[in-house]
Design a protein around this nucleic acid. Structure first.
Lengths: 145, 145
DNA sequence: AGTTATTTCTAGTGATTTGATATGAATTGA
DNA sequence: TCAATTCATATCAAATCACTAGAAATAACT
């Protein structure tokens, strides 16, 4: 199906939620879970990935929670999706590190996958979390009379 | 991982093989399987999908095999991938028929997915089987001294 | 010091998909 | 008739997906 899984999609919404709500004080998983209507426990696992990568800062204990490490404009959608999805390349031979395809030179379809990969990268590496925030505020504006 | 599965990739190589080899006489699964180094039985299942959709014509019995129904330039890569992969939309809410997302209007990430979908479509709906054939002949040429 | 609210860690689980394999029936050319 | 081929269906192991469960570690507040 070539689909972005819930993991990547939830991670994006999670980061957007943090961008919108963690300005002053840390935000708890429970709040995000309630606002975004996503399983609490599943979110824990997803934010753990973001935490390990240093994309968010955690504060343990009571009154704890999470904060964005950097400014929204410093996160591209690609960073977040690649981290949670593992890779956003349409075929594994495009991941230079893993599985370097030996037939690459004479592989006909490689040229197609390269084109597709470039097209995907062009979107996900240029849209930032700040763009999502902006879009959100625009949309929200539509509902103000 | 957001990967095109073997099914879609094999279907593409299968169609390319037919484009190159079914000019005069039908081509058997066994030949393709040998040339492409793909499991015979798995190819049968994949070509069954292409056959049901009318993308290939089958001839049963001895000396039978498969032929392309149309000319290579009449197949886009998108047609073949969508048929075998089910869908090439990065998220299900972009498939108008199935799962029409009600939050679409106020869904922030929808705008992102739409951009991504457009970028993917722009590639797979404009590259044809004839392009793959051409690329193949170019590559093959590289090995002639 | 103790309680409470939170993150953090490890494990398990049912459903679905993937990438096949196996068996045999139906069809047709020689 | 028989050999070669497609066609149909069933089965299967492994991986992935989307969670769920339980408990330990940590820090703020009283």
């Amino acid at each position: 199906m070539v689909r972005v899984s819930t993991k990547g999609r939830y991670a994006l919404r999670l980061m957007l939620d943090l961008a919108l709500n963690s300005q002053e004080k840390p935000v708890q998983i429970r709040e995000i879970s309630a606002r975004q209507n996503i399983s609490n426990k599943y979110l824990e696992q997803i934010i753990a990935i973001l935490n390990k990568a240093g994309y968010v800062r955690s504060m343990r204990g009571s009154q704890g929670g999470y904060l964005l490490t950097y400014k929204p404009e410093e996160y591209t959608v690609g960073m977040i999706l690649r981290l949670t999805e593992g890779s956003m390349a349409p075929v594994s031979c495009l991941d230079t590190d893993e599985n370097p395809c030996l037939r690459q030179e004479d592989c006909v379809t490689f040229r197609l996958w390269k084109k597709l990969d470039d097209a995907i990268k062009d979107v996900i590496d240029h849209v930032t979390l700040a763009d999502l925030v902006e879009w959100h505020l625009q949309e929200a504006g539509n509902y103000v009379i």
